[in-house]
Design a protein around this nucleic acid. Structure first.
Lengths: 335, 335
DNA sequence: CTGAAAGCGCTTACAG
DNA sequence: CTGAAAGCGCTTACAG
């Protein structure tokens, strides 16, 4: 069928050991021989069989990207943008990226020694167990949000400060009644956002009793609309909201608009993360920027280091965020 | 290190051959023995080594999802939604999905026998060569757009009819000067869209001299804005445009809005494909719906069939589209 | 510098 | 029904 190492050994008149050595750049082959072997490889188009190599080296050349609850998640550009970064991060290497969305696949992928390492997207407490993950002994890097008790290195945006900046931006515009639209607290990301919100409000001397916090657990436009409706009715004074993600902000704007309110005139809205599409929306979304592609890249290079057995210094890499004022924010209505 | 087939054979007091047979569900093992083996496997948590299996069976358990020009593309929800479908399609199987965005990775993935089959996203003529792809002899299914001379089965939306429906919807609203905002013609998708546009216009007795067609080759908001600007200036009569994708439509709306025009009052805009976010936008996007998740699922199941050596009947599976009227369309201004 | 040989963990004729 | 053995294509001590 396809050519094997034996074929190139024959064609070059050497042993397969020598071929293997030049393939992996190991020393111990004369330059003349090595050159001849390289030529033959090129000529007959030999490609090493990864299964065979993997069998003896106990590696696969694959890294897993594990994304929780696929269906809802992939539409969220936060994930796809980080994914882009990961892809770029491994582009120059020999690793392939295998993605899994369902926990069924994830378990299999990990148990089955099908990958050399794992990039874990913002895991939630109710999903893959940390104990289990630890017991596997696979190199793991977490991306997106920090897990308190986790032994794994992590790359993430500084959500807490991001939300703080968002709150302050609204404050500077004159807003005093500021709400938070958050995701479910089973995600550490949401917990950080809540902390950031509470801290910022307290620093500013504003009321942060959690009445002004709306928690949305499923990302369904109808549910968001309904929730926003009752939320705004119960908190009539709110003039601006900060959201824990751009995607959420888009839904909030939609919900608000269908209530015959106008953004930003009746309500200012700020997102979080600045996904590429945010500048593209109409009105363009005020949000807090972070280099999502950079986060993905960094997570990838970090994982590769761990796989290579290198000690990594920073176990928790936090990317700075920066508020970007666009069109969904304005001074409050009766200002 | 981890347990091997030998360990379970020892523990069960049988040969590795028997273990292998129950693993693959092959006949030739007594029910009592088989049951005992299954128990041992469960107890000691044995998982077969995929590399070893792959080496002898010459399979990998991986299917490749090949996405062209990653950076721009992944932000486009058209792709991520189909991806979701593919993931669902292989969820119940033992296959893993390995994704590649760069042609470098793609070549390696395919040459290196690292996958059992390939799902190829809307390839362009200037990318991976069909000749090369054919020469590899790997099962391939194309998703997204049809390649005329391609020997590979394809799953795709009926773009041509979709555009036709969009044009007709605008016509029915009273529009007569209808433009097309298209992608680059190196993609068959764009070619189909252009055909659909020309045919629909002709059927309606409208002018379809290509002056009313804007071709945007790179998806950059500044470029879109600039292009739209000159386009609308040169075609002042246009009251509605049809776009070859929802993503493009979002950019068009943005561009138009920054020109101090209002959608749909000054310009009606229709997208194509109805990605999940379209209903989420403000104003929500009028577009032509197609079951993108279904397309992904179908492509996956089709590829699995080809891998299994089954003959597939339909080489070109076309999904119907259906116009959805939302908020970016209205009667023309001076109607 | 070079090669013969063992071995990675499986599957699958082949023999019994 | 069951097992001994060959072999998949590599890598890597070990000897020379």
């Amino acid at each position: 069928m396809s050519v094997s190492i034996k074929d190139v050994a024959n064609a070059a008149g050497v042993s397969i050991a020598s071929v293997s050595r030049v393939l992996s750049g190991k020393p111990g082959v004369g330059e003349a021989t090595a050159e001849r072997i390289r030529q033959v490889i090129e000529e007959i188009g030999y490609k090493p069989n990864l299964s065979a190599r993997g069998l003896v080296k106990r590696t696969t050349g694959n890294i897993a990207v594990v994304i929780p609850r696929g269906s809802f998640i992939l539409n969220n550009p936060f994930f796809s943008t980080i994914l882009e970064g990961i892809a770029k991060g491994i582009d120059q290497t020999d690793y392939n990226m295998v993605i899994s969305f369902t926990s069924l696949q994830q378990k299999r992928l990990i148990e089955t020694q099908a990958v050399d390492g794992v990039i874990l997207f913002s895991p939630r407490h109710d999903e893959l167990s940390l104990e289990w993950l630890k017991s596997i002994g696979l190199p793991i890097v977490v991306v997106g949000s920090y897990l308190e008790e986790s032994p794994f290195p992590c790359v993430r945006p500084d959500d807490e400060d991001g939300i703080r900046q968002a709150v302050n931006a609204l404050y500077d515009l004159g807003h005093r009644d500021i709400g938070l639209v958050n995701g479910p607290l089973s995600s550490m990301h949401s917990v950080k956002c809540l902390n950031g919100y509470n801290n910022a409000m307290t620093e500013l001397g504003l009321d942060c009793s959690n009445k002004n916090v709306l928690e949305i657990d499923e990302f369904d436009i109808l549910k968001v609309k309904k929730a926003m409706n009752t939320f705004l009715n119960n908190h009539g004074k709110i003039t601006g909201v900060v959201c824990s993600s751009d995607y959420l902000a888009i839904g909030v704007i939609k919900a608000v608009t269908t209530m015959e309110l106008t953004v930003p005139r009746d309500l200012s809205v700020v997102g979080l993360d600045d996904v590429p599409m945010s500048d593209f929306l109409t009105p363009s979304l005020s949000t807090v920027h972070v280099d999502l592609v950079g986060i993905g890249k960094r997570a990838a290079s970090m994982l590769l280091s761990v796989i290579d057995g290198k000690q990594i210094r920073k176990k928790d890499v936090v990317f700075n965020m920066k508020y970007v004022n666009r069109e969904t924010t304005d001074v409050p209505k009766n200002h």
